[in-house]
Design a protein around this nucleic acid. Sequence first.
DNA 1: ACTTGGATTGATATCGATAACATGGATGCA
DNA 2: TGCATCCATGTTATCGATATCAATCCAAGT
Lengths: 338, 338
Amino acid sequence: MDTIRKPPTMADVARRTGVSPMTVSRAFKRDSSVSQETREAVLRAAEELGYVFDSTASNLRSQRTDFIAVTIPSINNANFADTVRALSDGVSERGLQILLGYTNYDVAEEERLIEQLLRRKPEAIVVTGGKHTPRARKLLSNAGIPVIETWDLPEEPIGHVVGFSNALAVREMVDHFVSVGYRKIAFIGGDADRDTRGTDRRAGFIAALVHHGLDTSRLIAAGPPPISMREGADAMRQLLERFPDTEAVICVSDLSAFGALTECQRRGIAVPDRIAIAGFGDYEIGAICVPSLTTINAFASEIGAKTAELILDVLNGKLDQPGRVTIRPDLILRQTSR
Amino acid sequence: MDTIRKPPTMADVARRTGVSPMTVSRAFKRDSSVSQETREAVLRAAEELGYVFDSTASNLRSQRTDFIAVTIPSINNANFADTVRALSDGVSERGLQILLGYTNYDVAEEERLIEQLLRRKPEAIVVTGGKHTPRARKLLSNAGIPVIETWDLPEEPIGHVVGFSNALAVREMVDHFVSVGYRKIAFIGGDADRDTRGTDRRAGFIAALVHHGLDTSRLIAAGPPPISMREGADAMRQLLERFPDTEAVICVSDLSAFGALTECQRRGIAVPDRIAIAGFGDYEIGAICVPSLTTINAFASEIGAKTAELILDVLNGKLDQPGRVTIRPDLILRQTSR
DNA sequence: ACTTGGATTGATATCGATAACATGGATGCA
DNA sequence: TGCATCCATGTTATCGATATCAATCCAAGT
């Protein structure tokens, strides 16, 4: 009797309960009109049969998947993870599920990923950043679903935006550093053509220095992203060799800033007395390391939460204009700077 | 002329190309038999029409979704992120996509999540850990797809396993600590009933101490998971108050170990001279912090890679027995211990 | 010339839930 | 009592790609 029997369908559940398949379908929905006892009978029969709702059929017929597609540069980044978690929590109460993909900081890869994700017919798509290939832009524009660009303030948004100006945020940090007396200020970041947010931050750094009439040559490129702790340490080593009189350094993220800090510790260089360090992103490590890290809070979770709100509003028809949520990053001054 | 026209289907592409829908379908597959020129014509027409392949229909008819469902406790954990990334990379070459959900270290939440994921009809499901609710076990057993439990060695596996013994790994660390002369050894971890891997690690810790005839009372519970840096620092504070003569402490993860280390630094307690510290998981931070962290490498990426291999083998019919891949964690001895 | 076989393409039915419309019975109100 | 409503449920057709079977054509082998 080891016949491979096909898994039960709604029709099977309907037969067992003595109702129509349509009633079974309704019983599995939240707010549809089925009597309490019918619903319980249906669910009991389903449980007894081991029935598992088949959303592939539901998706096709109802033209809804309850997916929210999301692209992030890296799955290993705590900032983006925070955003995704808040986004996921925000939309899950409406039964929406995150379909996540990572681009590895590569716009060509992003294009492929976006195409893949759109085939799954998500209800909306959230992308990290505002720089895309022309084809990716076209795919997003024509997708017929809400598009939300995050972690950036694109000049020509495709649809909605929940983000902040990376350049401006760093600029404010430079302004602060200058105001407390630092003059020889360096920047540690990745290659120009990969990490677009990192590039924006560097642009803000340079613009600020120019504005203050300071030397803009202290730029250390730490290679292709992700720029993490190891790269930060390596970059600090380079910085100390090439510009030993540097007074302060701003890093593209807290991770690289922490790496830079450890390099100073290994070399017995006093932070912040000999050199000040600032990071970006307010990662957990920055608050707890010794000395604690001056940084910029970009409100990663809030980006996710606001994006979720925006998506729900759009899907509820409460918003027909492109939404624009601007986050205002905060300077967090701690022990690695005066 | 602002009529809302429905998005084009394969039938539209077929009409435009002058072939049958079936041929269009074939043109969109990798290895199906279509002539080169037909395929190009089809793809050109599709591009001109802005056609986007609709996988909801494909999923239903072909009974394949190309999803691999994955549950992890937290999306913000670098270890699990490493596993997921390696898994994703491993299966993506076969066109398989990860459908990710997180359980927040809660088996009831895991049950809900597993049910949600199974409705999407994945080709296989990967779960983190070997402890589940009875209903979750039943759902997984009856799903009719490969089930892979990871990051653990369950006594009664549901299907396949790619993992290691958390207890044994910590036991080896204790053995090492005893061999170099530590006697008063403490453990910092989470609450017993949430983080099952953390609980296993603590069990291994206690078993090892018992084996060596040492005091097992130095246990600090840092609250519900995730146990991160802040919790590690708080726990170290408690430990120093309650057991000031402790010689060494093993933490449930590198993050809590780093937090504990920073607490020592803030208090001017010498590590490792006054107290030794060990972590778990070989996170990036452990290799780069000063002093660097003694830890256990659980090979998170390898778990993902092996899981991917196993899934591909099963889906290719190359494996009909339940697979059992045992990872052997490595002790990594660094500066926070002698 | 005839068979065989591979390559390419087409016709038809189908995957399983549900949108849209229809129906019967109960309830409310004048 | 009569008519409008609402609630619970049923009927039918359908979402869009593709599994399956069938047909055509051309080259190769005998």
